[in-house]
């Protein structure tokens, strides 16, 4: 009993610690790549070519003073960052890193990720309400509405994939892409998924919750030091989680691009990391290039373009699968 508990704890740590390191270096990568796009150097002082910048930032946030707004609801105020960080971490439990490296290979892993991401909204709403500040409140309202609306279109995209694969298990979805990545037959859905992914994680060009010019910094204005750091980690961990999800759903997870000699030697987890890297770079490049959307345009895009198209494509996919008798099982 004790032995199995220790084994499970070790497994959890072996996912969480590399994930946190990846989040730390994701921030460095973001600053470096954005620096390159804007033709400046980015962080290059701390450590060799600025590689220790993430640790320095973390240390700075750790030693700063945590301030609490005097009129805030302290319990909820402290609960919100903890909740959002926790939710962003437990989503990684079902992501398959390679053939064997998956913490929980459950049958309903996509639904699990879905449930987690729908709970993610609570962290933001609670933060916005508990801070007792107008900017935080408006930011929380915006982000909640945005995340809910884009979750629905992501849900329909995932449904089409589930109809093609015949399973909600992420490992089975990867194994079904052995012949061809789902990127090719479901290309429009792939583009929609990538755009919805940006909106779901509140990133540019849909970063209206923290539009600096209007709302200072959105739902986390009143947070400082470690409580802010938890929000920050949660946001970046969510971005990586969504990249991992898109890699699993569309790029064939741990599978090599072609199952011929030079590619098959490389272990699956390396391919998986490369594919997650594609998503991460996509997040950074869109941030560097695109201007912010207006809020009504965002809602228009979510409800009037993506949702009908995702439903239509689901019907199209299922229709083709039925008429050619290609349904799995």
């Amino acid at each position: 009993m004790l032995y199995s508990i220790i084994i499970i704890l070790l497994k959890i740590l072996s996912i969480t610690i590399p994930m946190l390191l990846a989040v730390a270096y994701f921030t460095v990568a973001e600053r470096k790549i954005m620096g390159a796009v804007q033709r400046r150097r980015g962080p290059n002082v701390v450590g060799f070519i600025g590689l220790l910048q993430a640790l320095a930032d973390g240390l700075k946030l750790f030693v700063k003073e945590t301030t609490f707004p005097s009129n805030s609801n302290l319990t909820v105020f402290l609960l919100a960052p903890i909740l959002s960080f926790l939710l962003s971490v437990i989503g990684w439990a079902v992501i398959p890193f390679s053939h064997t490296a998956v913490l929980a290979d459950i049958n309903l892993s996509i639904l699990y990720i879905f449930a987690i991401s729908s709970l993610n909204v609570y962290g933001l709403i609670l933060a916005g309400w508990a801070s007792n500040s107008k900017y935080a409140f408006l930011g929380a309202l915006r982000s909640a509405a945005q995340m809910i609306s884009y979750e629905i279109s992501i849900g329909f995209i995932v449904l089409s994939i589930a109809a093609c694969v015949g399973s909600l298990n992420l490992s089975k979805i990867v194994l079904a892409q052995k012949e061809i990545w789902l990127l090719v037959p479901l290309f429009p859905l792939f583009i929609m998924f990538y755009i919805s992914m940006l909106a779901e994680t509140n990133r540019h060009p849909f970063d209206l919750p923290e539009a600096e010019a209007e709302l200072v910094s959105g739902y986390n204005v009143e947070y400082s030091a470690m409580t802010f750091a938890l929000f920050f980690l949660a946001e970046y961990s969510n971005m990586l989680l969504m990249s991992a999800l898109s890699a699993t759903l569309f790029f064939g997870g741990w599978l090599p691009p072609l199952s011929i000699f030079p590619f098959t030697v490389v272990p699956g987890s390396v391919w998986f990391s490369l594919k997650v890297g594609v998503g991460a770079v996509f997040f950074i490049l869109t941030r560097a290039t695109l201007p912010r959307y207006r809020y009504d345009q965002l809602m228009h895009l979510g409800w009037k373009c993506f949702l009908p198209f995702a439903i239509g494509y689901l019907m199209f996919t299922v229709g083709i699968l039925i008429s050619f008798n290609w349904l799995p099982n």
Partner: peptide, 25 residues
């Protein structure tokens, strides 16, 4: 598990959030 996850997605992800919205607004 299926019903439990759907309970989470629909009741917590949609309905309770709408309640929160209305109460906040």
């Amino acid at each position: 598990e299926f019903l439990a996850l759907f309970f989470l997605i629909i009741y917590l992800g949609a309905i309770a959030i709408l309640f929160l919205f209305v109460v906040m607004m």
